[in-house]
């Protein structure tokens, strides 16, 4: 089973690599190739570490699989019936930015970061297993046509993603829960994972 996945992944990597021919950002090819060479490795520590973060509510709350953003430690549907909207940014005149600004507001407890918005439906993670999330992340049809290097960039440098380690306080002033891995360990893990070929282990 595991080998089937590796095979599938290798195939998709080749397809990805082929597609990249028309993409100006082509320096990712070696990394993808590397995944094939290291695919057999049993050491999934980097992947495990990364996924502990990506499966966390600080990430999944904004990667819902339906029309509704989630909120809070219990990932309840966003209050007031807030919907995804056409541009993943809420309704026409009541957008995410009606309440969420470019940083956390510690007076109100409303969280914020640059580009506060929902991940598009193609990047829905809610309800997916960690391998399904990882696969969707690498699938250019679903990941916003991002190369693996761009994915790495999104995962390690995008302020909205790194907000997870500075999630601020809630409406009662209590600190929001952070992902179970430190930011530094997470970033190192993502980089290592990509460097080692972005291998997705068996379920």
């Amino acid at each position: 089973m595991k080998y089937l996945f590796i095979l599938l992944f290798a195939c998709s990597a080749i397809v990805v690599a082929f597609n990249l021919q028309n993409d100006p950002v082509v320096e990712t090819i070696p990394a993808v190739t590397a995944s094939i060479t290291t695919a057999a490795s049993e050491d999934n520590t980097a992947f495990d570490t990364m996924m502990k973060v990506l499966m966390h509510k600080r990430c999944v709350n904004c990667h819902p699989s339906d029309a509704y953003p989630r909120q809070g430690e219990d990932s309840h549907i966003h209050r007031f019936g807030i919907e995804r909207g056409k541009a993943n940014h809420g309704a026409e005149a009541t957008t995410c930015n009606t309440c969420h600004q470019a940083d956390n507001n510690n007076q109100s407890g409303v969280p914020g970061a640059p580009e506060w918005s929902l991940a598009p439906l193609s990047m829905a993670w809610q309800g997916l297993s960690r391998t399904e999330i990882a696969r969707s992340m690498l699938d250019r049809k679903r990941n916003g046509n991002r190369s693996i290097k761009e994915i790495e960039h999104h995962l390690t440098e995008h302020e909205l993603v790194l907000w997870a380690w500075e999630p601020g306080v809630d409406n009662e002033g209590n600190p929001r829960e952070k992902p179970p891995v430190s930011k530094e360990d997470y970033i190192a893990a993502v980089k290592k994972w990509v460097e080692e070929g972005a291998h997705i282990p068996d379920e």
Binding site: A93, T95, C99, Q101, D103, Q107, S108, V110
Partner: peptide
């Protein structure tokens, strides 16, 4: 021109 909630706008 955009609606914002000023209690939560620094």
């Amino acid at each position: 021109g955009e609606s914002i909630r000023s209690c939560s706008f620094a």
